[in-house]
């Protein structure tokens, strides 16, 4: 593959595994070993520009988070990259091969597989059938060979074994004969991810994998995603859950109004003023369950609100005590 040559002819310290980028960090920064490179990709709906990405590179064997406010064009960008939508202009390469204009099913065959924001489990197929469908290069999927079971029976057995192993990892093995329709929303997310992995992808693109998933399941999903990286896959995901982004992402790309507005390591990007303004909001790390938190937010919105809150606190001795306690704690 071309990735070897790409890394040797640039003058960087290749021994530094942590170094993801080359040059100055900023939107569209070059990566040491990109798997996906997109150039001037635009998509407009009528007069509304949904996506206008000048240049972006996705680092190989890393977990990259794509964040941004609602309507930033994250999902549209996903759809364009995976062939589910056609851009007005633009080019992108995957593993050095041109991918623009390639239909969705061929994109998947090249090893770039995606999941959907609104989970697409195949309701009236069993969980196991859902999984088997994910396997690629199946001989029995040809209509003529399908009539002769002895041609594909062995492959089917191998796929079933592989599916069982994956289902076991995602704790769905006991559900294998149930219709996918009988699974809960979170389990369907798991099934969709497991099904995507049946094709042994190189790049996994997850569109909001945590939406509607309970905290315990979130933990195990995070583990699964980290596991993908250990197995040598690249992960690109869209997510609104900042906790998840901070925990597992190696790199964060921020989109707003169709453009890439910031890029960088998660801890650095979260402090970026442009990101805070566009997406997180000034009080993103404030706990609204506490009085001090509420006061801090109220200060920004309306000074009268602060007065009202303070009056309320002074009128109630219990609240006043609580506020004093909280302030003590923060000072310590």
């Amino acid at each position: 593959m071309s990735d070897q040559s790409a890394t040797t002819d640039v003058n960087v310290n290749v021994n530094d595994a942590k170094q993801i980028y080359i040059g100055d960090v900023g939107p569209g920064v070059k990566k040491r070993d990109p798997i996906l490179i997109a150039d001037s990709v635009t998509r407009t709906f009528g007069g509304n520009t949904a996506v206008n990405v000048e240049h972006v590179e996705i680092p190989r064997n890393m977990i990259t988070a794509l964040i941004g406010p609602n309507g930033a064009g994250k999902t549209t960008f996903f759809n364009l990259l995976t062939g589910f939508d056609k851009p007005n202009s633009g080019n992108w390469t995957y593993d050095g091969q041109k991918l623009a204009g390639v239909p969705a099913f061929k994109v998947a065959r090249r090893g770039m597989v995606r999941t959907f924001q609104l989970t697409k489990s195949l309701a009236l197929l069993s969980v196991m059938e859902n999984m088997r469908l994910g396997a690629t290069k199946q001989k029995g999927e040809n209509i003529f060979r399908a009539m002769l079971p002895f041609l594909w029976r062995d492959q089917e057995k191998a796929n079933t074994a592989k599916a069982m192993e994956l289902l076991g990892r995602f704790k769905l093995d006991t559900k294998k004969d149930d219709y996918a329709a009988s699974l809960s929303g979170g389990q369907r997310k798991l099934l969709e991810m497991a099904r995507a992995l049946m094709s042994d992808p190189d790049l996994v693109m997850l569109d909001e994998p945590m939406a509607g998933v309970n905290p315990a399941l979130t933990q195990s999903l995070l583990g699964h995603i980290l596991g993908l990286k250990d197995q040598g896959m690249t992960v690109l995901f869209v997510e609104h859950d900042m906790h998840m982004v901070q925990t597992i992402a190696d790199w964060v790309i921020v989109m707003a109004e169709g453009k890439i507005v910031a890029e960088g390591y998660p801890s650095v990007v979260m402090q970026d003023q442009a990101v805070i303004d566009a997406y997180l909001g000034a009080h993103h790390d404030v706990d609204l369950g506490t009085l001090t938190g509420q006061l801090a937010v109220a200060e920004d919105i309306d000074p009268h609100l602060v007065e009202e809150l303070r009056e309320e606190v002074s009128a109630d001795p219990e609240l006043a005590e609580e506020l004093a306690e909280e302030q003590n704690r923060t000072e310590q």
Binding site: F84, F105, R109, F116, A123, T136
Partner: peptide
């Protein structure tokens, strides 16, 4: 049968 349920999902798995 997968196409009957959701053709985009089947497409995303590499089927024509």
């Amino acid at each position: 049968k997968g196409i009957r349920e959701d053709e985009d999902a089947v497409r995303s798995l590499g089927k024509n």
